[in-house]
């Protein structure tokens, strides 16, 4: 079970990182979501895997799982939602400002010839372009 969960977390982070490296806003949002799953599961797993022992005090229960990672992950899930929501609105704002959903404004395509041309411009010149 441990190995299986470890592989699942690894796959979630792998796919999350890959999607975060995409050039469009929506895959980046998906990637961040996957990465938050991975991180939440990882934090949760630091309390180890315990079955049928929720941390709810009762007379019948004889042992409990570790409540601290759960408390940490609970707020992490909610804050993760806040972050996702913020980035979604950021993406929409970007769409309205630039007319596209590329993560860079202005777009920086990834083929190397045009990158060199943009890279040689001083930042100030780029900014001017952006304003005009």
């Amino acid at each position: 079970m441990e190995a299986m969960l470890a592989i699942a977390i690894g796959l979630l982070s792998s796919c999350g990182v890959y999607l975060m490296l995409r050039a469009r806003t929506f895959p980046v949002i998906l990637g961040l979501t996957l990465l938050s799953y991975a991180v939440n599961l990882f934090l949760f797993a630091s309390g180890r895997l315990v079955v049928n022992a929720p941390p709810i005090i009762s007379a019948e229960a004889n042992h409990y799982t570790d409540p601290i990672p759960q408390a940490l992950v609970l707020t992490a899930i909610v804050i993760g939602f806040g972050m996702t929501a913020y980035i979604v609105t950021l993406a929409l704002r970007g769409l309205s400002e630039s007319g596209g959903d590329h993560v860079d404004m202005p777009e920086i395509p990834d083929d190397d010839t045009s990158k060199a041309a943009i890279g040689n411009q001083p930042p100030a010149a780029r900014q001017k372009e952006q304003q005009s």
Partner: peptide, 8 residues
């Protein structure tokens, strides 16, 4: 991903 799986 491998790093995360390994650490986990």
């Amino acid at each position: 991903g491998c790093g995360m799986a390994f650490i986990t």
